[in-house]
C-alpha cells in the first residue's frame, strides 16, 4: 500500500484540507484503490515519448501591452467574506 496514514495527513495539509481523525484510514484505502487502478500505466513503454503539453497544436496568442482592465475594486471585493476599504481581510499572517 503506497499511501499510509502519515502520507494522507501530509497530502491533506499540502492541499489545505482539514481531516477528521476518523477519515484518515478510510481515505488512505480509497487513495490506494485509485493508485492501484492507475498502476497498469507502469507497464506502458513511454521511452522517447514527449509528454503532451498542448492538446491542439497551435501557437500561443499574445495580448498587446495595453491597460484594458482595472478600477473595479467594488467588483473585486463584491463576494469577499471579509473586506474593508477595498482590502481583503484575513487573520493576521505572521511573517
Amino acid at each position: 500500500m503506497p499511501v499510509d496514514q502519515a502520507i494522507v495527513r501530509r497530502i491533506a495539509h499540502l492541499a489545505r484540507i482539514e481531516l477528521a481523525a476518523d477519515e484518515v484510514a478510510h481515505l488512505a484505502c480509497e487513495l490506494n484503490a485509485i493508485l492501484a487502478f492507475v498502476e497498469e500505466l507502469g507497464a506502458v513503454d513511454v521511452e522517447g515519448v514527449e509528454p503532451m503539453t498542448s492538446v491542439m497544436p497551435m501557437r500561443m496568442k499574445e495580448r498587446a501591452d495595453v491597460v484594458t482592465e482595472g478600477n473595479i475594486a467594488d467588483a473585486i471585493v463584491a463576494n469577499a467574506p471579509a473586506t474593508e476599504d477595498h482590502y481583503f481581510i484575513v487573520p493576521k499572517v505572521v511573517e
Partner: peptide, 11 residues
C-alpha cells in the same frame, strides 16, 4: 505519475 500519464496521452 503525472509525466508518465501525459506521455501516455501523447500515445
Amino acid at each position: 505519475y503525472y509525466v508518465r500519464a501525459q506521455k501516455i496521452r501523447t500515445l
